[in-house]
C-alpha cells in the first residue's frame, strides 16, 4: 500500500532503479540483527570486501560466493555483554571493531583472525562510560568517555594483531561529545558535535582542540556524520535524531552546514527533508528520522515509519526509497565501503544488500 503511493508523491526524485536488490543474507541462527558493516578481508592472497553482521550476542563474517550469494565464514560469540554496534575502520584489513554495553557503550573490542595461531579471536581495546566512538583511516579509533568529574577524549592506534600501538589524548571540550566525524581530505583533523549543540575541531597529531562553535538552535541535538574540507571551509553533515519537526525546514533528516574554522561562524547550506504530504509521514506519526549513515554525498536514513530513504545531500533531493516490506519495518541502514552499495536490515528479519 505504501509502495503504491510513493511514486506519485515523490515524483521528482526517488526511483526504484536507484536501489537494486543484489542479495540477502540468510542467517539460520534466527538472531536479530543490531548492525551491519563491511570490512576488507585478505585470505590466501585475495583481498575482498566482506560483510559483517552483529546480533546482541555474536558477530558474523560473511564472504561472497557465486551468483550474489553470501556464506558465513565465522561467528565470534560475545555472550557476556550485548553488542551495540559495529564501528567501521575505513581502510583496515582483517579487523572488525565492535562496541558492547547495556544502555551505553561499556567496552570496545577488536575481532580478528590470527594467522600465527590460525584462529579467530577478540581483544579488549578500551573500557569505560563511552559516549561516542569513530573509526578513522590508518587503523585509528577515537572515543569520548565520561566520569563524574571529567571527560576523556582519546585516539588509539591499533596494531594488525588487535592491540594498541599508541594512545593520544585529545583536549576535551566542557560539554559531552556526542559524535565524531572524520574530515575527508584532512587526515589530521577531526570534527565532533557536543550535547550543547557545538561543533568542535581537533588536531589529531597534537591533540589540540582548535575550535568550538555553537551551531545555533535551528539545528537542535546535532550529531555529525561526516565532514569535507574545501576552500578553507568545513562542510559538516549533521542529523538531529531528537529534533521535533521545525517550521523552517519541515521534517529534516540531514543538514549540511558550512563551517569556517577561522572565524568560528557557520551557516546551513542544504536541508534533506521528507517532502510534505509524503505517505512516509502518515501513521505511525509523528514520522521522524531514527538513524542514518552517510557515504560520499549520499545520506540514508531509517524513519519511524519503517522506511529507508536515500538523499543526495548536495542537492537535498530524495533519490530512493525502500518502503517497509510486508515482512517488517527496516531498522538499520548502512553504506558499504568503497561504493559497494547500501545494506538494510530488519529487526527480526534478513539483511539485504542493494546496489546504489
Amino acid at each position: 500500500h505504501v509502495a503504491e503511493q510513493l511514486t506519485p508523491v515523490l515524483p521528482d526524485g526517488p526511483r526504484e532503479e536507484n536501489l537494486q536488490l543484489m542479495s540477502e543474507l540468510k542467517d539460520s541462527s534466527g538472531s536479530c540483527a543490531v548492525d551491519v558493516s563491511t570490512v576488507w578481508w585478505e585470505a590466501a592472497g585475495c583481498r575482498e570486501l566482506r560483510v559483517v553482521t552483529a546480533s546482541e550476542s555474536s558477530v558474523s563474517l560473511w564472504e561472497p560466493l557465486t551468483h550474489n550469494h553470501w556464506g558465513k565464514v565465522y561467528t565470534w560469540q560475545l555472550r557476556e555483554i550485548p553488542v551495540i554496534q559495529i564501528i567501521p575502520l575505513p581502510d583496515s584489513c582483517n579487523l572488525v571493531c565492535v562496541a558492547l554495553g547495556e544502555l551505553e557503550i561499556g567496552e570496545i573490542r577488536i575481532l580478528l583472525y590470527s594467522s600465527e595461531t590460525d584462529s579467530f579471536k577478540h581483544s579488549l581495546v578500551k573500557t569505560g562510560n563511552i559516549k561516542a566512538v569513530v573509526g578513522l583511516k590508518e587503523q585509528r579509533l577515537v572515543s569520548s568517555s565520561r566520569t563524574l568529574q571529567e571527560q576523556q577524549v582519546e585516539m588509539v592506534s591499533l596494531s594488525g594483531t588487535g592491540g594498541s600501538k599508541d594512545r593520544q589524548t585529545l583536549m576535551p571540550p566542557k560539554e559531552t561529545v556526542t559524535a565524531f566525524a572524520e574530515v575527508e581530505g584532512m587526515k589530521e583533523a577531526l570534527v565532533g558535535t557536543t550535547a550543547a549543540n557545538s561543533i568542535v575541531v581537533w588536531n589529531l597529531r597534537t591533540g589540540q582542540l582548535l575550535r568550538k562553535t555553537h551551531v545555533g538552535y535551528s539545528y537542535p541535538a546535532s550529531i555529525c556524520h561526516r565532514a569535507y574540507s574545501d576552500s578553507g571551509l568545513l562542510f559538516v553533515v549533521l542529523s538531529h535524531p531528537h529534533a521535533e519537526e521545525s517550521e523552517s525546514c519541515g521534517n529534516t533528516a540531514f543538514h549540511v552546514v558550512a563551517f569556517n574554522p577561522s572565524s568560528g561562524r557557520s551557516r546551513g547550506v542544504m536541508c534533506s527533508c521528507l517532502p510534505p504530504g509524503s505517505p512516509l509521514l502518515m501513521p505511525p506519526c509523528p514520522c521522524r528520522y531514527l538513524e542514518g549513515d552517510v557515504w560520499d554525498t549520499a545520506g540514508a536514513a531509517v524513519l519511524t515509519s519503517g522506511a529507508v530513504v536515500v538523499w543526495d545531500l548536495l542537492w537535498g533531493r530524495c533519490v530512493a526509497v525502500l518502503p517497509p516490506s510486508p515482512t517488517g519495518h527496516w531498522a538499520l541502514t548502512r553504506w558499504a565501503m568503497a561504493g559497494a552499495g547500501l545494506r538494510a536490515g530488519q529487526r527480526d528479519g534478513p539483511v539485504r544488500l542493494y546496489r546504489y
Binding site: 584532512m186 575541531v201 588536531n203 589540540q208 578553507g232 569556517n260 577561522s262 568560528g264 561562524r265 551557516r267
Partner: peptide, 23 residues
C-alpha cells in the same frame, strides 16, 4: 556562502589555529 556570512576564510586555517591553540 559569501565571505560576509562566514567571516574571513583562510586556506591555512588548520596550521594557523594549531599555532594559536593551547598545546
Amino acid at each position: 556562502c559569501s565571505e560576509s556570512d562566514l567571516g574571513p576564510i583562510s586556506l591555512n586555517w588548520f596550521e594557523e589555529l594549531s599555532a594559536e591553540a593551547p598545546p
